[in-house]
Design a protein around this nucleic acid. Structure first.
Lengths: 133, 133
DNA sequence: TTTAGAAATAGTAATTATTACTATTTTTGA
DNA sequence: TCAAAAATAGTAATAATTACTATTTCTAAA
């Protein structure tokens, strides 16, 4: 039951810390293979889940059926670009008050919320503008 | 391309309108079979997607990897019970202001948001209370 | 330093939700 | 009534993820 060190887990976490684009398990797998060629996909999934359970990374579920992972565990939100599908960080204060509002309209007990935003990312906005020129 | 009537689609929608618990495609399938025994699962999926695209029902994605469907298309939120997994309606005003707040912290253009709450539903709250007596 | 047992791995198979395919049936407008 | 378009049932395929198992790695204690 005790956690043991594994080089694979370390490589997975190190890789995730270099990325700000919230990669999927498959993307982690493809990239980590560059420096650890015979790591298995199951190992990537198992360690991403383990790290998420430990709170060392965050699992993002943005409704498209694929889990994404974020090495930044600080409290922040995300925006999904409808044009390119990218997931961009949104650094803003936690919207805790909406949990309070929800509780006033609910018979049980509300403990938290999940939010993600959707729209158009900076890059796709720029592309649209220059296309109009 | 023109939409044609289908009895199966009608039965699916009629069933969904009787339910307030946001059933999954499989739950719809199992129940609709009672009155339409040889309907196929593919037909249920296709029609739920079609009805959602038409805006006649709403598709809910609550991060557990299973789509749920709601015949109530009015603007409201949902709470997922961590004890029993039920999905309960939360009738409260739309939290449009958070989209504005998010836009102030984002370089692109935010157009909307998805929220769901999690906590303990009324029934599970009651069970916990009576267990303590 | 050796070693034994626990934990982790690689590789593969299985699972689950969903979509795609196709021959047949149903719907509907002329 | 009839023909083309749309929908269906039944089956196969897909995609993401989890489970299984023999082997390897890690680590604490001798």
């Amino acid at each position: 039951m005790a956690l043991k060190y594994s080089r694979q887990r370390q490589v997975i976490k190190d890789f995730l810390m270099t990325r700000k684009d919230h990669p999927t398990a498959d993307t982690v797998y493809i990239n980590v293979r560059h420096e650890y060629p015979n790591i298995s996909l199951g190992t990537v999934y198992r360690n991403l889940s383990l790290l998420a359970d430990l709170g060392e990374i965050t699992r993002l579920r943005l409704g498209d059926g694929v889990d994404r992972f974020d090495a930044d565990t600080s409290n922040h939100y995300h925006c999904v670009c409808k044009e390119c599908g990218s997931v961009v960080d949104l650094n803003m204060d936690s919207l805790d008050h909406i949990t309070q509002i929800a509780n006033q309209h609910f018979d049980g007990q509300i403990q938290g919320h999940v939010i993600y935003f959707h729209g158009i990312c900076k890059d796709c906005c720029c592309k649209k503008c220059s296309a109009k020129i």
